[in-house]
Design a protein around this nucleic acid. Structure first.
Lengths: 137, 137
DNA sequence: TATTGACTTAGAGCGCGCTCTAACGAGTAA
DNA sequence: TTACTCGTTAGAGCGCGCTCTAAGTCAATA
């Protein structure tokens, strides 16, 4: 008893595939970021393919700075079916706008960094200094 | 007594210009992200132009996800003069690499978002729903 | 003189997003 | 039976980056 179906995954397997810790996976479920995961006959979570897909989306949103509370709101909208489609679209559009701002910041910072890196490089060439691993020379 | 010079700024003025709170400005100084700010004769901080420039760099690094502890390391290297130029360049290069990864994540997430937004839009067109502000029609 | 307001410090508190602990249960191997 | 592994829950704890509080100084104003 307690067997997983072939198309199901244990929490450990999901952890390994996603990089999220088992703690985090349970935490996400607990706070309503995920629907209650179906259970195997022994009470263990049995993740399905669509759970993995949902987790992938969550990770993308998190990695790009969406807050947990906003992700909760999106998950809530999902639960409430087709009537929330416009709201979901609007929420995604708002995140998109934030990402565009972020992209600009990132672009500018990259320019600044490259300028400074070049500057440091010119200093290094003008005034070479013994490095720790060149003492033998 | 206690007059600011023309080219100096109070902590409030720096706060207004940068968007950082006065709490945060003092906090950054306290933890060594900034050199001790010069004081006016009344003991109040008198920020100079180069302080603002440094703050601007700090804000860029923070906004692009550099950790405080890494910024502290960079500030420490600055304090130790020209011998640390290579290390500073390497640190900036490492941050640059992280930003390139982040940029890719951002790009991909933008693509995913746009796909979902388009999908939602198609659903909205196929099955239009009364919106809250269109009850009059 | 008394009050107001902007500043100072040291240090406590807080919200976020995990991360871990304790206590327990079911299944398997020796 | 004993021990081990892998899972479960509720709830405590933690690191980060601020954010705020308390208590005090000082200068200007009513």
């Amino acid at each position: 008893m307690g067997q997983m179906m072939d198309n199901e995954l244990t929490i450990q397997q999901v952890s390994a595939r996603t990089g999220l810790s088992v703690h985090t996976l349970r935490y996400y479920e607990r706070i309503g970021l995920m629907e209650p995961i179906c259970r195997a006959s022994n009470g263990h979570r049995a993740y399905k393919e669509y759970d993995l897909e949902w987790i992938t989306l969550l990770m993308r949103l998190r990695a790009t700075g969406m807050r947990i509370s906003d992700m909760q709101r999106f998950a809530d909208l999902m639960r409430h079916g087709d009537l929330t489609i416009s709201q979901r679209r609007e929420q995604l559009e708002e995140h998109e706008r934030k990402l565009l701002v972020e992209r600009d910041e990132l672009r500018q910072t990259l320019l600044v960094l490259r300028g400074k890196i070049e500057y440091y490089r010119s200093l290094e060439e003008a005034q070479p200094v013994l490095k720790p691993d060149s003492q033998h020379g």
